[in-house]
């Protein structure tokens, strides 16, 4: 069974998925942060592939990508860092990134490498749905990888149904019309959208991302979905202090039940 499915079977609610950029703040931090997240209680891990032109990201993730690239991060480097991933990390790990570096690496070679090191799924936000269906779906399936699609408050009902058919593992619910890290907190408008999706009876599990940063926003999101995703806030944290202890304290703080 894909580890993503296993994670949602083992734990029915309040799953925390944490995003961080590979090679940030230091080139060799990638595996250590994954280990710390696993040990600290994250339920899923998303490793970001840095790209020179990340249009869907706000300043925090963009700056982390720029730094990671300056540190010398490449896909080859990342795969060598993750060579022993599964000796250390049990939770599902996804790679998230823009399509161009993946295409240059070679899509099938990339998927083969992912399978080899124990990656469970991909999030490629700028890969169009029809391209995925026509060219890449079979390749992902061949290597047992799940592809996660995004929906936003502006995604039409018809398109949500289609995305639900194509997604595997979970659907990434972007909480608002924004780039990453742009908005703080959750508005009533967003609650309406969360509620609508919650009652849409989708096949897939749902994780809410963008604007989730702390215990309060995490708990709020978890009322309407199976869990939530933290990115920019975690990047800021590791930029200050990427020690396992600091990461564990943060994860425990986010996940603790609201008092």
């Amino acid at each position: 069974m894909n580890r993503i499915d296993q994670a949602f079977l083992d734990k029915k609610e309040r799953l925390l998925n944490v995003y961080y950029t590979a090679g940030f703040p230091n080139l060799e931090d990638t595996l250590d942060i994954a280990k710390a997240l696993d040990a600290g209680g994250a339920d899923l891990i998303e490793i970001g592939l840095p790209f020179s032109d990340p249009v869907a990201d706000g300043p925090t993730i963009q700056e982390s990508s720029t730094k990671a690239l300056a540190n010398g991060m490449t896909l080859n480097k990342l795969f060598s860092q993750l060579q022993d991933l599964r000796e250390h990390v049990e939770v599902p790990v996804l790679l998230m990134g823009y399509i161009n570096p993946v295409l240059q690496y070679g899509f099938e070679k990339f998927c083969a490498k992912c399978a080899e090191v124990g990656i469970d799924g991909l999030i490629l936000p700028d890969l169009p749905m029809y391209e995925y269906e026509e060219l890449y779906k079979d390749v992902l399936e061949k290597y047992g990888l799940y592809n996660v699609f995004l929906i936003t408050p502006q995604t039409s009902d018809e398109r949500i149904q289609k995305i639900d058919e194509l997604s595997k593992g979970f659907i990434y619910m972007v909480s608002s019309a924004s780039t990453t890290g742009a908005k703080k907190g959750i508005s009533s408008e967003q609650i309406n959208y969360f509620q609508k999706i919650k009652s849409a009876n989708l096949r897939n599990k749902r994780l809410i991302g963008f604007g989730i940063s702390d215990n309060e926003s995490f708990s709020k999101a978890c009322e309407y979905a199976d869990g939530a995703i933290i990115g920019s806030a975690f990047i800021k944290l590791v930029e200050q202090d990427s020690s396992a202890e600091n990461i564990k304290n943060y994860i425990q703080g986010v996940k603790s039940p609201l008092s």
């Binding site: 896909l75 161009n100 993946v102 700028d126």
Partner: peptide, 21 residues
Amino acid sequence: GREGVLHGSRTLLMQTDDGQV
């Protein structure tokens, strides 16, 4: 350049071996 994806379209693009623009 080589074939790649930037600003929403697949086109010819000046990039590193690693796909950075």
